[in-house]
Structures are given as structure tokens and as C-alpha cells.
Design a protein around this nucleic acid. Structure first.
Ligand SMILES: [Mn+2]
Ligand SMILES: [Mn+2]
Ligand SMILES: [Zn+2]
Ligand SMILES: [Zn+2]
Lengths: 139, 139
DNA sequence: CAATAGTTTAGAATATTTCTAAACAACGTT
DNA sequence: AACGTTGTTTAGAAATATTCTAAACTATTG
């Protein structure tokens, strides 16, 4: 209970966030598991299930703080709900339109050889590739 | 007032939608103008401004019907709000994160030479490339 | 024109996210 | 260890976008 937390404490301090009870608990849930995609509501439910009392507002605050700090990434594939990703490396996604599930595509599995030049006065933030798929009814 | 409508009437009939007053008016607003991106609320306001009385529910119904019929396309770049596109050809987008504006990128200006194979039992719906840009503060 | 099926509508409902402002906790300083 | 400061958490309300409901309306066919 003491040692495992030292990692998340260090990580939070590194990005300039106070290691509060709620942030540590959420960070532990998020970063002890492998790479995954989730919504705010899902994380809130997961926390509740693990006996961690944290408000939904704090979950949202934390997700945005972590995203800004670069230890989480937000993925937009569905209007009406935001998804977050513990995998912050350069990669892309399959999006299953029926189940609303996301699946990583390694950056090396998509090659873009030609990109347009950016509009005047803009900075590149990110190039997102989303491959939208549906269930094949005859399979 | 009679002739211009024949085009939208034909177009609606072609895709199996009754040419109702509201659908004709919205189709005219949408397809007489050049390619553009817009939200439901924007179209509703534009209709009101043009003296067309149509409920927001009908605007949403119509946008979804047109999208399903393939004469509009929905673009997801921002959680919390859907955008639609009168350009249904194969193309991609710049998304200006500060102003929430979209700009078309012709399919020929992006070349993807390598794509992963689709997961088992899925059908490809679309490959969306979104180049997210922000305002360059020092320009 | 009557019958039918499809459409429109206002308003309520839903869903997700953000806001508010008061209570609380982390942490550097005494 | 207590203090003061600042940052954080919280419940609940509010904001936002979209969908639902079911009654009124209209296009189409016969
Ligand atoms: Mn959905
Ligand atoms: Mn936004
Ligand atoms: Zn991912
Ligand atoms: Zn477009």
C-alpha cells in the first residue's frame, strides 16, 4: 500500500499536480492497468466499484488535467461522448460504430506519405486517423 | 420559385424522401450554396433568418435522413457537437481547434500508402483523417 | 376527395459535461 | 505540530446538445 503509490506520486509530481487522495487513486486505476480506452462515466464507475469515493466532477477535472499534462489523451470519435486513452504514444484507431469500442493501430501500421501544408498562421496539433468499421452482418 | 425547386424535388424523390415543405426548404439552403460545414443549430438559425419556419427536431430529423441517404455527411471532430458536410466526396479535414472551423482537404492531397487489415468480422465504413491545428500565437 | 402513411411540431426528457461556491486538504513556513 | 495559503473536491445546479413523444398535419395514392 505504501510502495505501489510511490510511482503515481512521483508521476503526479513530475507533471506538477499535487498527489491528492483522489488523483492518486484514479492514476493508479488508470496506469496500473495496461493501455485502454474509457469514458469519464466508466472510470467513475470503476472507482466506485473499487471503493474509491470520488465525485464525477473530480473525475472530469482529473481527466482534463491529466490530458493537459500529457499523461492521457482524449479521442474524439463519437459526438456526445468523450473517450480517453492511457496510450499517449503516436498511434491511430479503429472505431467500431456498433459497439462504440476503440482499438489501437500502431503508428507503424499506417503510412501517410503525403500531407497538405498547414493553413497560414496555424500550428499542427495532431493528425488523427480513425478507421470506422461496422459489424459484418453476414459473418 | 417554381423551377428552382424542381431540382431539390427530384433529388429528394431519388433518395426516397417525400418532398415536404420543410425538406425542400432545407435542401435548397444546403445544396444551392457551395460545399460547406455546419451544425444543426446553424442550419436552424439560417432557416429562421430566411423566413422558413421549421422546428429544431425537424432539422435534426432531416439531417439524419439526408446523411443516411448519402446526400450529406456527418463529421465528428468535437465532442458535444455534430457537424455536417454538404461535400460527400472522398475528402479529409483540417479542424481549427480554437475556432471550431473545418476546412476540406482534397483526397488527392493526402496519400495513405499503408493501412492495417480490418479486424475479423468488420466492414470498412470510412477512413477519416483529421488534421488538428491551433492558432499560432506568434504569427 | 378520402384513406393512408409518413412528417412535423412543441415541449418534455435524456445525456453528457461544466459551473458554482463552500468545505476540505496539501504543503511550505513558522 | 499549528498556521496560512493555495489548490482541490464536492453536491447539486446549470448548461448544452440531442432525442423522444404523441398529437396535429400533409403528401400521395386510389
Ligand atoms: Mn452513438
Ligand atoms: Mn469545444
Ligand atoms: Zn488508443
Ligand atoms: Zn468537408
Amino acid at each position: 500500500m505504501q510502495r505501489p503509490y510511490s510511482q503515481v506520486i512521483d508521476r503526479l509530481k513530475q507533471v506538477g499536480l499535487r498527489p491528492t487522495r483522489q488523483r492518486m487513486a484514479l492514476a493508479k486505476l488508470l496506469f496500473d492497468a495496461g493501455d485502454h480506452h474509457f469514458s469519464a462515466e466508466q472510470l467513475h464507475n470503476q472507482a466506485s466499484g473499487a471503493g474509491i469515493r470520488v465525485s464525477l466532477a473530480t473525475v472530469y477535472n482529473t481527466l482534463h488535467q491529466f490530458t493537459k499534462a500529457g499523461i492521457l489523451r482524449e479521442i474524439i470519435v463519437s459526438s456526445g461522448r468523450s473517450y480517453f486513452d492511457t496510450n499517449t504514444s503516436d498511434h491511430h484507431h479503429f472505431f467500431f460504430e456498433d459497439s462504440h469500442r476503440l482499438l489501437d493501430i500502431d503508428a507503424k501500421d499506417i503510412t501517410i506519405t503525403k500531407l497538405p501544408k498547414l493553413p497560414e498562421g496555424t500550428l499542427l496539433e495532431r493528425v488523427d486517423v480513425v478507421i470506422r468499421v461496422s459489424d459484418n452482418p453476414k459473418s
